[in-house]
């Protein structure tokens, strides 16, 4: 009797693990192993001069945190996040409010708000480069009507970040909108009905019903937006190469530069570890609320 039970249990376990094995192999090769390898490599010196990694403890991290370029790039990334996250979220919320209820033009605005999400970041970069480019660009032409002749938003350290922030908001707001659309549809209709019966004003409804009840969506979108601010760097290849004077460089781009242009593997690994820790912290905020995930369905 017990052996039969054990046999059944063994069979069930074996079957389950067999089903998971294909996924596990790929995850192991391209997620777990690289993470461990990165952590290991970050404790070693490994560049063109030292093809065989030499253990140097935390030296890479110390050099990294003292490096002016790294500090610059990290600060840039934080400004990039501050610039893109709140604005695109607020815009997404407003877009959703409109696209949810609009009587006229609903299909139009949904398309207009969301289509940038379907365009690859590289193509977005081409499009916006041609908006920002001096003389021939859309903005330059527009400015020339007002007698402003030469403006190079991407060529100037003070304006380049702002220009890229605007671009990313354009790309992302519509994507976040659809999560708010889902969130809005989950608010019970009778709440609005009873508010209408009681003669409650639009602003109060917004403040007391809509905003609080879309809070889980807001939290979720905030984390996606923050993560994206660190993940999206493709545009830099086309638009600025991180310049001028590292004014637009971002962490992931700098990692690429360090590892593949300067072949400093140890340093690249140390910076990747910083990135991984950052992402783990960000997403653990989300996964604390693990059980509330179903509200998007």
């Amino acid at each position: 009797m017990t052996t039969a039970k054990w046999g059944e249990r063994l069979k069930r376990n074996g079957f389950a693990w067999a089903l998971l094995l294909p996924s596990l192999i790929f995850l192991g090769l391209f997620t777990y192993y690289p993470m461990l390898k990165t952590a290991w490599l970050s404790l070693h010196q490994s560049d063109l001069a030292t093809p065989k990694p030499v253990f140097i403890g935390f030296d890479n991290y110390i050099t990294m945190f003292q490096d002016a370029v790294f500090q610059k790039v990290f600060t840039n990334n934080i400004w990039f996040a501050i610039g893109t996250v709140p604005t695109s979220m607020a815009l997404a919320f407003v877009m959703a409010l409109f696209a949810d209820k609009a009587m006229r033009g609903r299909g139009f605005v949904r398309f207009a708000y969301f289509y940038p999400n379907m365009i690859p970041m590289i193509a977005v970069a081409n499009i916006w480069l041609f908006i920002y480019t001096p003389q021939y660009g859309l903005l330059a032409r527009f400015a020339s009507w007002f007698g402003q002749s030469d403006m190079s938003l991407l060529g100037h350290p003070d304006t380049v970040m702002g220009a890229l922030v605007v671009m990313l908001i354009w790309k992302e707001a519509g994507y976040f909108m659809i999560f708010y659309l889902a969130g809005l549809q989950n608010i019970p209709k009778d709440l609005y009905e009873s508010a209408a019966v009681d003669g409650v004003g639009v602003w109060t409804v917004l403040r007391r019903i809509t905003i609080p009840l879309t809070m889980p969506t807001t939290l979720f979108v905030a984390i996606v937006a923050l993560t994206n601010a660190f993940k999206l760097v493709d545009h830099l290849w086309i638009m600025t190469k991180g310049g001028p004077d590292n004014a637009s460089s971002l962490l992931l781009y700098h990692i690429y530069d360090t590892a593949f242009s300067f072949y400093d593997q140890g340093m690249g690994a140390a910076m990747t570890v910083v990135m991984i820790v950052l992402l783990l912290v960000l997403s653990s905020l989300q996964f604390f609320g693990w059980d509330k995930k179903i509200h998007y369905q």
């Binding site: 391209f30 690289p34 993470m35 690994a269 990747t272 991984i276 997403s283």
Partner: peptide
Amino acid sequence: KEVLFMLFLVQIMVPADVLIFSNYHV
């Protein structure tokens, strides 16, 4: 099951985009 579930979550938290450099070596 629980442990594996958490392990799978790691891929969502740390997407391949970030691990380019180590995946290149693999």
